[in-house]
Design a protein around this nucleic acid. Structure first.
Lengths: 162, 162
DNA sequence: CTTAAAAAAATGCATATTCATATTTTTCTT
DNA sequence: AAGAAAAATATGAATATGCATTTTTTTAAG
């Protein structure tokens, strides 16, 4: 319809379609978006979902560990956790061995919500993969991403424990 | 060091390490983070960088098109663009064919910044891939992501034009 | 042709996020 | 063992973001 009224012609090569970081961000957004809508409907924001998922995988992490795993800036995570604490979804305890640290656990209620969302996330993942890749391709993609994370996140994302 | 003071044992299977959406988000963050630091040092936020990159690839898109391509909520994009307009990095023109739409272009200055950042992004991408994958794996990963985007983003990310 | 519905962008306002910095505790140096 | 440096959280204040809604324009229906 609209002709975009361009002034200048295209500069050089198309950039985005071959830029790994763009492809990752776009695929990530597409893959997660509709699940995030489900979570929102359940009253859980994206940031909160990330915390629930991380804790459901490994409960009792410290704020800093959690921040790394959930890819959140520390002070942001502190406040996300604070809200979740107020709603009774997590509890915090200062670590006795190192009293600088604060560890975070799911409460019973939080764990329930997490279990439910994790189940839905698994279902959503299966649907999503089926909608765009063969099972083998899905496995291959995961393997490649895992390799990227292990190599690039050396020390940063130690929490991918199997 | 710290023993994480767990109360309950682990629930079930580890979840995150095999959850595609987590792998994508994590890899995406790791891949982009250090470039985002570079951009910030150049006075460009992540959101602004996305706009610059999208426009440098295809100038004169409408706000809605840009929002889809840059994966930004529309009202957020409107304000990001407004700031970029104030700084003289982009200009907006209401479309004559369809006066609801507003198209966005890079200014000379904006295009200069975009060119510079795109060049750095390409260099950063090459370094990043080399740091964690073989060239063949890098290509394979891009191919898989492209497939995901084409299939899952049917109609949503039409702007991946080569 | 007139009115209803849809589409695009902007905006008000409540909330969330960021950045820098303060605070507390631990680790390292000498 | 004392003091400096580092590490982990928290917090104040400026800014950005999200959601619902409004405004303007276009498209569809009757």
């Amino acid at each position: 319809m609209s002709d975009h009224e361009r002034d200048e012609p295209r500069t050089g090569e198309p950039f985005l379609a071959d830029y790994l970081q763009f492809l990752l961000a776009t695929a990530s957004g597409l893959a997660s978006h509709s699940f995030h809508v489900q979570a929102a409907a359940a009253g859980v924001s994206v940031a909160e979902w990330r915390v629930l998922a991380c804790l459901s995988d490994c409960d009792g992490q410290s704020v800093t560990e959690l921040a790394r795993l959930a890819q959140m800036e520390q002070s942001r995570l502190t406040r996300v956790i604070e809200r979740m604490d107020n709603r009774g979804h997590v509890t915090r305890k200062r670590c006795r061995d190192d009293r600088r640290k604060v560890h975070v656990w799911l409460t019973g209620q939080g764990a329930g919500i997490a279990r439910d969302l994790v189940a839905r996330a698994r279902a959503h993942e299966a649907e999503f993969i089926e909608s765009c890749l063969s099972p083998a391709e899905g496995r291959r993609l995961k393997a490649l991403l895992t390799k990227v994370i292990e190599r690039a996140g050396k020390g940063k994302v130690h929490a991918i424990r199997r």
